[in-house]
């Protein structure tokens, strides 16, 4: 498989603001790569550098040190800027602040319009993108009357209309209620499965990471852990040291093992966990 995103010894610091003496370091020596077609979740506390990392992935921010490559393109090359942003779509936290137009279809059409795509093709892409997130019936609606989950799906459609290869969601579920989160996650999973779009999901909800191909944990601007959800979540002590908690399933299994029960640690889903406990009790 080829590489979608790649960072090499990436370092970044925000310029010093008024009243601060030194710039604030946000990323330090981050080296990672994301395979095409994979579903990667990035976890971490606020201030862990995960949002800064996201903004590096489509050249909203540029490295202070090290390199970032999008599909082989160096993000520092200004001539490639539009192409990089077309390939890596970005969805942000607040749904209200990324919807540009006051009709859903007009908003989804915004990016293709910017790219100078012919009218008939825009129409096709808008309809297709809205169908992909299950929002076709809201084509002519006013965005401010939609629910949070619906708005966020419109924002995703707006990105899909660029025909990107990768979508980065920067805490896109943080402001949603449980049903809104479910809507957005299932839309994103479908895009990954059915269209092969690479997904980088940045979140602080542990449970969103369970189905990922790969899990990256950020801490203090550094890459702290990198592996499959089972590999990462079973390191309960290391997670606790960073103030993060493993999912209930792993926490329970961990406790049971300490109590002398013979259970595996990597049964992440409720079903697997219940089955494993049953086996041990038998």
């Amino acid at each position: 498989m080829s590489t979608m995103l790649q960072t090499e010894h990436l370092t970044f610091a925000y310029p010093a603001e008024e009243g601060e003496s030194a710039p604030t370091a946000a990323l330090e020596d981050v080296t990672l790569s994301v395979e095409k077609g994979s579903f990667v979740v990035v976890l971490g506390h606020n201030g862990s550098g995960k949002s800064t990392l996201a903004k590096q992935m489509n050249a909203v921010l540029l490295p202070c040190g090290g390199m970032v490559y999008v599909d082989g393109m160096d993000t520092k090359q200004e001539a490639l800027l539009l192409e990089i942003r077309r390939r890596v779509g970005m969805v942000f936290q607040n749904p209200d602040n990324q919807i540009v137009a006051n009709v859903v279809e007009e908003d989804v059409a915004f990016a293709p319009e910017n790219l100078g795509i012919p009218t008939e093709e825009i129409r096709r892409r808008v309809d297709d993108a809205l169908a992909a997130v299950g929002m076709s019936e809201f084509t002519r609606h006013a965005p401010h009357l939609l629910s949070g989950g619906q708005k966020q799906r419109v924002a995703i459609a707006g990105v899909i209309a660029m025909a990107p290869e990768c979508v980065v969601l920067d805490e896109a579920t943080a402001m949603l209620d449980p049903s809104g989160r479910r809507e957005v996650l299932s839309a994103i999973r479908a895009l990954n499965r059915e269209r092969g779009i690479t997904v980088v999901l940045i979140t602080h909800h542990m449970d969103e990471a369970l189905n990922a191909d790969r899990l990256i944990v950020m801490n203090d601007g550094r890459l702290a852990m990198d592996g499959t959800p089972a590999e990462v979540f079973t390191q309960v002590d290391a997670l606790r040291a960073m103030g993060l908690a493993a999912p209930d399933t792993v926490e329970l299994l961990y406790g049971l093992r300490q109590g002398g029960m013979d259970v595996p640690l990597d049964a992440l889903t409720v079903e697997d966990c219940a089955a494993a406990i049953c086996r041990a009790l038998r």
Partner: peptide, 27 residues
């Protein structure tokens, strides 16, 4: 102001670069 700031970033991420070469959904 916060909204304006975030909206500007979101628009840039969706390849907005002024009116040049723009097409439209409705002609």
């Amino acid at each position: 102001f916060r909204r304006a700031d975030e909206l500007a970033t979101a628009m840039e991420c969706r390849c907005y670069h002024g009116g040049e070469g723009r097409t439209t959904l409705h002609v």
